[in-house]
Design a protein around this nucleic acid. Structure first.
Lengths: 226, 226
DNA sequence: ATTCTAATTTAGTCTAACCTAAATTATTTT
DNA sequence: AAAATAATTTAGGTTAGACTAAATTAGAAT
């Protein structure tokens, strides 16, 4: 009954969680795209996860899947591992923020609860990872995050970057070079409704304005200042 | 051609290396016992490993297996990972020496070369792990080790413990409580040829003599002093 | 040299996950 | 409302790695 979940299943649950964060259920195709496998394979797995004891997902044909309480626990456990690992790799082992994702993806499935506890303690029980993503608590509660996408910022508004929802190394290096990292302040100078480009001043001091496309501004999350 | 080896295959190669360290080839049964699987399964895998391109083992029916150069490289890579990880877990993360084995066994297959390099650097490129086992160099050369089993020590001889070849947590805790850890000095006070028990004084100071059976003394390796 | 035993191999299954191709259902457009 | 398109599911097949049971071979003992 309490068989440990395979790494594969952990990846499915994690991905279903991430796709479901904005409220809706995770579709077969979206899962297939994220996991890099054929949609037919996803269908098979969702049927299996829904039929497991206890069930890990709620699944109805053509309706996609959402996590059960059990499934969510498992997903949050993996996500906690992943984000603690990313933090550890950057903070203690000196990795750069753009190449921790892959390593954490492999490690997240194999570390023990003791390992988790020890790195959390070594890091001083951090609340967020190097990309600003909140780290679930040891009790597997996801801290609330009220940030909104940078794409919603409008001229005259100032904001602080809270998190960057990206894992592609090249993109992360690009953002780093622009100064678009968690904690940075930005002010919207201009917005073009036609292409949704946002012109930003990044940082506190006299900085050259940057024009950023929506493909990027949708992946950056902010809190508006005052 | 350069497909990455599965974790399973890595475990086979590592185990074949360990069983072959004393010269002879690794038998089907010995492998099955170590890996906790049925002998028939081992036969199948050995055939596969011998048929791989490049071949990872030399295998002849009923003769057991030895590693090819390729197979040995892969084995040493895994062993280097394992021993560096054990060292890191004990030295940096504060694990006790008796419970690092399992964790390292899971991690050894998934860490990157970058991870390996960073923990090696953080540890100052150690030569031996917490049990005294030599750590293969980054070029995958196993450092020579001239130690001999404690079971060969005879009354009047003094020795320093170099390595402890054991992974069972209960045994390791027991050895720790006896002071039988790498670096410790021992002197043989008595030897019983009938049961091969060795009576030892452990440590430098006035210590109570300990009578140790051969099941233990064969797993501890020493260098005789002067 | 023969017999016995222990080790090993063969043969045939099983499970987890994946795949492709074909069939079906849902959704959008006409 | 019907047709076209897109999403999803079904069906059938593959691979890795394990299993059991039966057959064989090697080595030891008579």
């Amino acid at each position: 009954m309490k068989e440990p979940l395979t790494q594969n299943i952990q990846d499915y649950l994690k991905t279903i969680y991430e796709l479901g964060e904005d409220g809706d259920s995770a579709s077969t195709t979206a899962l297939a795209a994220r996991l890099g496998i054929a949609p037919a394979s996803v269908t098979g797995m969702l049927q299996k996860l829904a039929a497991a004891t206890p069930p890990l997902v709620d699944y109805r044909k053509h309706q996609g899947a959402t996590l059960t309480t059990e499934g969510e626990r498992a997903a949050l456990e993996v996500i906690r591992h992943h984000r603690l690992l990313e933090t550890y790799l950057v903070t203690i082992l000196g990795y750069s923020w753009d190449n921790v994702h892959e390593e954490a993806c492999r490690l997240e499935h194999v570390i023990s609860e003791e390992f988790e506890a020890r790195i959390a303690a070594a890091l001083g029980h951090p609340q967020r990872d190097p990309h600003g993503e909140p780290i679930p608590t040891p009790e597997l509660v996801m801290p609330p995050d009220a940030s909104q996408p940078l794409s919603a910022l409008r001229p005259g508004q100032k904001a602080r970057i809270v998190r960057v929802q990206a894992s592609d190394p090249a993109l992360l290096r690009h953002l780093d070079s622009l100064g678009l990292t968690p904690g940075a302040q930005v002010e919207a100078l201009d917005y073009s409704p036609y292409d949704q480009n946002l012109t930003l001043e990044v940082g506190p001091a006299p900085a050259p304005p940057r024009v950023i496309g929506v493909a990027i501004t949708r992946q950056i999350f902010i809190e508006i200042i005052k």
